[in-house]
Write a protein that binds this DNA or RNA. Structure first.
Lengths: 206, 206
DNA sequence: GTGAAGATTGACTCGTCAGTCAATCTCGCT
DNA sequence: AGCGAGATTGACTGACGAGTCAATCTTCAC
């Protein structure tokens, strides 16, 4: 065989994926052309189709790669022997740190997949839902143990929690919210404080 | 002049707008063709361009019409002499009832504009932000009066509140959450209970 | 060194669709 | 009745961009 060694092939593929992240983040998935990705990666147009079946598959790959990491992280957090509030904090941390570490990638995943349930996200609804379900399970356990009130359903609490985080990331992405380094850590605490502690000054009447 | 009376013109325009809502909700803005809107409305292709400058303008119109109603509703709620928690409940009510009353329209606004900040929503960011700011102002006042804790910034609380509602609507839209009639009223209470009361069983240490 | 499998190239094809426009119709006035 | 402004029609154009493919180059086992 004269096949290039697998590592080199993987590197070329990565080169294209990384270029796609930058292009998608800058121009949006629908607005950019495949030639933009090829140019950004410094390869010929056709090579993108050597490594990927379609433009969609490039975005699919980016999303699935990262989302699986997120799901694993949530599962790992859930196995820790800490209270639910700390688990939620750890999850918020992971997501916020993902954004801090690679804002372009998170922007693409949120804007083009997670928040685009009508176009691209549709095919990934089941995968996205897995995350909600894992969070809901954490809430359910905390309600059973008495740590959380059971005034809201776990599914609902999970949606509110995830929705709040995603909205904050969206705020950063579109510069509706200051995104200075210190704001990242503050945001983690804020999400958990709001969702777990609530805004009310006086204790709940439960 | 042989101009048809203005009322008839307005009705034709409405006919097209209403058809567009159904088509956008069913197929998505980017996936549908202008001819789909014309067919749904039972008019010729070109007539759409007699009443609107472009396909974009149709969506623009739908969004702005409804969003202005929402902004007015929030302002009206804010003028009421009730506690902040009740104000937030009234806002959640308004949004949920908007969805109950016309799910297609709300689906279009959320999916194609509000959650599509990268494509279409970009040009409406300022308008969308107005809603956040109005909610943030309510929170700020409540913090000043001592009704709400000031552990989180108003801007952040507003994002979390709005994010939670939008995520719940999205859950209904994509059938991730049961959307039976009784769920609507429950959801209003859930959002406010989660954001104001928090999930924690024990009172906050403030 | 050589040959073949695989990598790389980019011009081209092909379908799609937003927006245009000239023709036709219809309403409301005189 | 007859006219003219505006309403309505739908075939057509022009741009665009995803995906194809035949040609060329590179690598590596022998």
């Amino acid at each position: 065989m004269a096949t290039r060694n697998p590592q080199q092939a993987a590197e070329k593929r990565r080169l294209i994926l990384d270029a796609a992240v930058r292009v998608f983040a800058r121009q949006g998935f629908h607005t950019c052309r495949v030639s933009d990705i090829a140019d950004e990666a410094g390869v010929a147009y056709g090579l993108v189709y050597h490594y990927f079946r379609s433009k969609d598959e490039v975005l699919d790959t980016l999303f699935l790669e990262r989302w699986d990491v997120l799901l694993d992280a949530i599962r790992e957090v859930d196995r820790r022997e800490v209270c639910a509030r700390d688990k939620l904090y750890a999850i918020a941390s992971f997501i916020v740190d993902s954004y801090r570490h690679d804002p372009d990638l998170m922007k693409v995943i949120i804007v083009e997949v997670t928040r685009a349930a009508n176009s691209f996200g549709r095919s990934h609804l089941a995968k996205i839902r897995e995350a909600y379900d894992l969070i809901a399970a954490i809430v359910a356990k905390a309600q059973a143990s008495g740590e959380f009130k059971d005034t809201v359903t776990p599914a609902f609490a999970a949606l509110a929690f995830y929705g709040a985080i995603e909205q904050v990331l969206t705020g950063w992405i579109f510069e509706l919210l200051p995104g200075a380094p210190e704001d990242f850590d503050q945001a983690k605490a804020f999400v958990v404080e709001t969702i777990c502690g609530g805004l009310d000054a006086r204790p709940a009447a439960t």
